[in-house]
């Protein structure tokens, strides 16, 4: 699923010397040697030093995954959103359940498209930048949904949780898994 980056040696040395100055982590694991010295560099994806303890990337990667996991819980919003005007029960102008449940479908569809379009981008920019963009998108998605609920504009809810949420889902799901699997390459992935 994830192709390994095969950089040029020069680009690698430049990148390594730059990063090893800024990133200094303990050397729990023995020194690492680059194996592949072929052409074409995608060095931007790298931001760990050669002596980086790979386990250090697991807890923050887990937190990134946890922050997007709640997108699966759209059902929790069904009731308060379908009663946002009537509050205790649905008012005539409240959104119906049938209008609100499909937001999840839209998010999932948007995820599918985002995975297709953004997969290579996530690989190129690395987990830090991708994770930052994903987190901002997820925050913006929920806030857009909130405006849609507050102002009672259904397309904003579809755009927020649906379209933007799906994009955030794709980025925040892919980028930690991708970088962890690069750190731990000796196994097939556990899938989507």
């Amino acid at each position: 699923m994830l192709s390994y980056v095969r950089p040029g040696l020069r680009a690698f040395r430049r990148d390594w010397s730059r990063l090893s100055q800024t990133v200094s982590f303990s050397t729990d694991e023995s020194e690492r040697e680059p194996l592949n010295k072929s052409a074409d560099s995608l060095a931007a994806a790298s931001n760990a030093s050669m002596s980086y303890n790979r386990w250090l990337t697991v807890p923050p990667s887990m937190l990134v995954e946890m922050s997007i996991g709640s997108i699966y819980c759209w059902t929790m919003w069904n009731l308060p959103i379908t009663q946002s005007i009537g509050v205790i029960t649905a008012a005539p102008s409240d959104f119906s359940v049938s209008e609100i449940i499909p937001v999840f479908s839209l998010a999932a569809g948007s995820l599918g498209i985002a995975t297709g379009f953004l997969g290579k981008w996530v690989e190129r920019v690395g987990p830090r930048k991708a994770g930052t963009v994903g987190a901002v998108t997820w925050c913006a998605a929920l806030c857009t949904t909130a405006v849609g609920v507050e102002q009672h504009i259904l397309p904003l809810i579809y755009t927020g949780y649906g379209l933007m949420g799906g994009v955030a889902w794709g980025i925040l799901y892919m980028s930690p898994v991708s970088s962890v699997m690069k750190h731990f390459p000796d196994r097939r992935g556990l899938g989507e």
């Binding site: 950089p7 690492r32 680059p34 995608l42 030093s49 970088s179």
Partner: peptide, 10 residues
């Protein structure tokens, strides 16, 4: 959390 994630060097 994303600020602390790292990809391995190429």
């Amino acid at each position: 959390a994303a600020q602390f994630t790292r990809a391995p060097p190429p």
